[in-house]
Simulated assay, not measured.
Amino acid sequence: MTINFKKTYRFAVKSALYITLFSTGLVSFLTYLFFTFSYRFSSIFALAIATFSFVVIQYRVERFIYKKVKKIYDDVSLLESSTFRNQPITTDMATLTREVKKFATDKKLEIETLKGREEYRREFLGNVSHELKTPLFMVQGYLSTLLDGAMNDKTIRKKYLERAEKGVERLIYIVQDLDMISKLEIGELNLEIAEFDIVKLVQNVFDLLEMKASKKDILLMFDMKYNKPVLVVGDQEKIQQAVMNLIVNSIKYGKEKGSTEVSIEDLTEHKVIIRVTDNGEGIEKKNIPRLFERFYRVDKSGARTEGGSGLGLSIVKHIVEAHDEKIYIDSTFGVGSEFSFTLEKAKVIKKLN
Rank of each mutant, 00 (worst) to 15 (best):
F52T: 14
A242I: 02
E210C: 04
K215H: 10
S144H: 11
S23R: 06
I327T: 08
D106Y: 14
V272C: 12
Y32P: 04
A322T: 02
E306M: 14
E162F: 10
M1V: 13
L136F: 05
L21Y: 09
F103M: 08
K154D: 00
T20E: 01
G234T: 02
S337A: 06
Y59F: 14
I193V: 09
D153S: 00
K347D: 13
I198L: 06
V233D: 05
A164S: 02
K71C: 10
T51Q: 06
N249S: 04
V316N: 00
K271C: 03
H318A: 08
F124K: 10
D179L: 12
P229R: 07
V76G: 12
F11W: 13
N204Y: 13
M93V: 12
Y73A: 01
F52Q: 11
D324R: 14
L291I: 13
S28G: 08
E169M: 10
M1N: 11
G307Q: 06
A94D: 14
I181P: 01
S82H: 15
N353C: 08
T20P: 02
I319D: 07
T20A: 00
K257M: 01
V320M: 02
I218E: 00
E338S: 03
A50C: 15
S23P: 07
I57W: 12
T268F: 05
D179G: 13
T105G: 12
F295K: 02
V100R: 00
G187Y: 00
E169S: 04
K225S: 13
D106C: 08
M224S: 14
E169K: 07
V243T: 11
V233C: 07
S182N: 10
S337D: 01
E344T: 10
I273M: 09
R157K: 07
I156A: 08
S28I: 04
G280H: 10
I57V: 11
T145V: 10
F84K: 03
S38T: 09
T90A: 03
